[in-house]
């Protein structure tokens, strides 16, 4: 291939048929259905997908666990809700401001916590998630407590009003797919290799010039931004936010989806997302209350019962075991 725009585009978009197939398939969904229920499942799938891809970069690629990622989704959702309904900020600007806030908070809490390994990191991030959850409930003046915030307007852009579920589907999936593409590119880069290297051995990575503390912080902030943006989209779509959407439960399910999808490739995030969005819908048909039960059992089965020698779970266990010896 020679010069010109087309080759430039094709280099940015790696020659990756799997990605093309995925993109075309999901973007065509609105051509086949107007069913708002199905479209709503897809809408949540898109935002979950963003969160899971971000978390995959942190956990799957760099090997750093976070059990507090629902909090970053919450920061995005509440950031948008508060800024838009209380301060009349433009929704897009609010989305960006919330993401910046999430990045800043991730930076602040990442500096001390990412020094920790294994179970300690898991507990520290879990603690952070719980603190945010409690703040969302307690800061009533700002968040309206357990009642949550209503009346968040749908997104719009010039003449396009994304309250139309099919239009929204296109918007949210284009954003999610772009982020996925960026993540694919990242894994195939100098920084992707550095993150993968430090997952295996921080000492070795450092000896090869990788500033591991900074790289871990960077990917933590990146995953927080992805989560926050996803939260903002959800808030505008549902037009309502409440603290129950951002619990430890959600954080655990997110981690599960990364583990189930596998650490081998960021494509694991696709399968993990499918599972955590489709499975609950199927279970709900039989029994509304069984969702948490089934997920709980699933986690127990995966973490405790399966005798694993290799694969993502073995990696997770290894990772939870902690610090490498010099």
């Amino acid at each position: 291939m020679s010069g010109g725009t087309s080759s430039r585009v094709s280099r940015f978009v790696p020659r990756n048929w799997s990605f093309a197939v995925l993109a075309v398939a999901v973007l065509l969904v609105p051509a086949f259905t107007r069913d708002t229920y199905i479209l709503s499942i897809f809408a949540f799938m898109a935002t979950r997908f963003m969160v899971v891809v971000g978390l995959w970069l942190l956990l799957g690629l760099a090997g750093q666990i976070s059990l507090g990622h629902a909090a970053f989704v919450g920061l995005g959702a509440y950031g948008s809700a508060i800024l838009v309904t209380r301060a009349d900020v433009n929704p897009w600007l609010a989305l960006v401001m919330s993401a910046v806030l999430a990045a800043a908070i991730a930076g602040l809490i990442g500096i001390p916590t990412l020094k920790l390994k294994g179970h300690y990191l898991a507990m520290a991030t879990m603690g952070f998630g719980e603190i945010i959850h409690i703040l969302l409930i307690q800061l009533k003046g700002l968040t309206n407590g357990t009642d949550g915030i209503t009346g968040i307007p749908p997104l719009s852009l010039g003449p396009l009003n994304f309250s139309d579920p099919r239009l929204y589907h296109l918007l949210v999936w284009v954003v999610a797919l772009i982020f996925f593409l960026l993540a694919l590119n990242l894994t195939n880069s100098r920084l992707g290799r550095a993150l993968q290297a430090l997952r295996r051995s921080e000492v070795a990575a450092q000896s090869l010039g990788v500033d591991t503390s900074w790289r871990k912080l960077q990917v933590f902030m990146l995953s927080a931004v992805a989560a926050s943006i996803a939260g903002s989209f959800d808030a505008h779509y549902v037009q309502f936010v409440s603290p129950d959407s951002f619990t430890l439960n959600v954080s655990v399910i997110l981690v599960c989806s990364v583990v189930i999808g596998g650490f081998r490739s960021v494509w694991g995030a696709v399968w993990g997302t499918l599972l955590i969005t489709i499975l609950p819908e199927i279970i709900k048909r039989f029994n509304e209350d069984a969702v948490n039960l089934v997920f709980g059992l699933l986690i127990i089965v995966i973490v405790v019962l399966l005798p694993v020698k290799s694969g993502p779970l073995a990696r997770l266990q290894l990772l939870l075991r902690g610090r490498e010896r010099l």
């Binding site: 590119n185 880069s189 100098r190 920084l191 550095a194 090869l208 010039g209 990788v210 990146l222």
Partner: peptide
């Protein structure tokens, strides 16, 4: 990975 110290592409160049 050993080239890390001798290269400099940041997040943006890797993304795009």
């Amino acid at each position: 990975v050993g080239r890390h110290a001798r290269t400099s592409a940041g997040l943006l160049s890797a993304f795009l």
